[in-house]
Computed example of a mutant assay.
Amino acid sequence: MSSIGGIAADAGILVEAYDDAGLAQRFPYLGFPAGTRGYFEPQHAGYISPRRLVRAQTIAAQRAGARIIAEPALGISESATGVTIRTRSGDVEVERVLVAAGGHTQSLLGQSLGFVVYARTAAMFRLDAAEVQRLAGMPSMRCFGPKGADPYILPPILYPDGQTWLKLGGDPVDIPLESEGNIQDWFRSGGSIPVAEGLEAQLLERIPGLQIEERRVVPCMTTFGTTGLPRIGPLSDRVTVAFGCYGKSAKCSDELGRLGSMALLGENHGVLAA
């Protein structure tokens, strides 16, 4: 927490600092254990809609001249003259390729790059209009507890199904997904019910009296290395990778993508790799 306060001060980010009593006064619908300290960003902070983010990035790419092929890449092979990307509808021949496939990257390339893919479970809770109104103004939260219960919690958000859901995640243990088959099996499994139950208990501690209409369990995954840095850089003259998100790629994706394309073009100055 002291690091967060220092970073905010160094970067000139406006934050409001609260002790447990101040948090209770500022956010009366939330519950905080004694001794809690919090930083609240009242401006330029919040949550990201993955659907809108991907749509916006796709439109930006098309405006810049990109051709979008909305199919999974099934395999990549490199030759002396170029790179072949295999899809269900045929091969795509390119001069160079940037592989930014998250947890699928290593299996797509057929080689280990020193990162581990972990299963993750998120839980979503449908709220009625009264609860949505009661929690109006609720911030996005990243919680850190003394016993390793460190969930992220999003405020009530209206989803494409027309319902308002409150989402949180935070797995107590790391379960590695060691192959593409493991990844596919995990997403077909629907996620971990015990993890979701633990998340629900944590949510009820932090929002006392929360009235839940329905719970959904959502499987997810993330990719971790040993340094805390993503892997951004060339594997060969024609294949470059950008992956290894540690669960942070959505909010950083514009900049990570820029660094990946710099690496693809050979502009390696300032590009970090792990």
Rank of each mutant, 00 (worst) to 15 (best):
S2P: 00
S2R: 15
S3A: 13
S3C: 00
I4L: 15
I7R: 13
I7D: 06
D10K: 14
D10I: 02
L14Q: 14
A17P: 01
Y18V: 05
Y18T: 09
A21S: 05
A21K: 07
L23Y: 14
A24M: 05
F27E: 04
F27P: 03
G31Q: 03
P33I: 06
G35F: 07
G38A: 15
F40I: 01
E41A: 15
P42R: 04
H44D: 15
H44Y: 10
H44G: 08
R52C: 06
A56G: 03
Q57H: 14
A60L: 07
A60M: 01
A61S: 13
Q62F: 05
R67A: 05
I69S: 02
A70R: 02
E71Q: 15
P72M: 00
A73V: 09
E78W: 06
T81P: 00
G82P: 09
G82C: 06
T84H: 09
R88F: 05
G90C: 10
V94H: 04
E95T: 13
E95L: 08
E95G: 12
V97Y: 09
L98R: 06
A101L: 07
A101V: 02
G102K: 06
T105Q: 01
T105G: 05
G110L: 01
L113V: 05
L113C: 02
G114I: 03
G114E: 05
F115E: 14
F115K: 14
Y118K: 03
A119D: 06
A119Y: 02
M124Q: 11
F125G: 00
D128G: 08
A130F: 07
V132L: 01
V132E: 10
R134Y: 13
R134N: 11
L135R: 07
M138I: 04
S140C: 07
C143H: 11
P146R: 15
P151C: 12
Y152K: 06
L154P: 01
P155Y: 06
P155I: 03
I157F: 02
I157L: 12
G162L: 12
T164L: 04
K167Q: 01
L168K: 12
G169H: 05
G169S: 09
D171C: 11
D171F: 06
D174E: 15
L177G: 00
L177E: 03
S179R: 04
S179H: 00
Q184I: 02
W186K: 08
P194F: 10
A196E: 13
E200G: 03
Q202E: 15
L204Y: 05
E205T: 08
R206Y: 01
R206T: 10
I207P: 06
I207A: 12
P208M: 11
G209C: 10
L210A: 08
Q211M: 01
Q211H: 07
Q211W: 00
I212T: 01
E214R: 07
E214F: 00
R215I: 10
V217M: 09
V217T: 14
V218N: 00
M221R: 01
T222K: 07
G228K: 11
L229W: 07
P230T: 06
L235Q: 09
S236C: 04
D237S: 13
R238H: 01
V241C: 02
G244P: 02
C245W: 07
C245D: 15
Y246S: 04
K248Q: 15
A250Q: 08
K251E: 15
G257T: 00
L259Q: 14
A263F: 10
A263T: 03
L264V: 10
G266I: 06
G266M: 14
G270Y: 15
A274V: 08
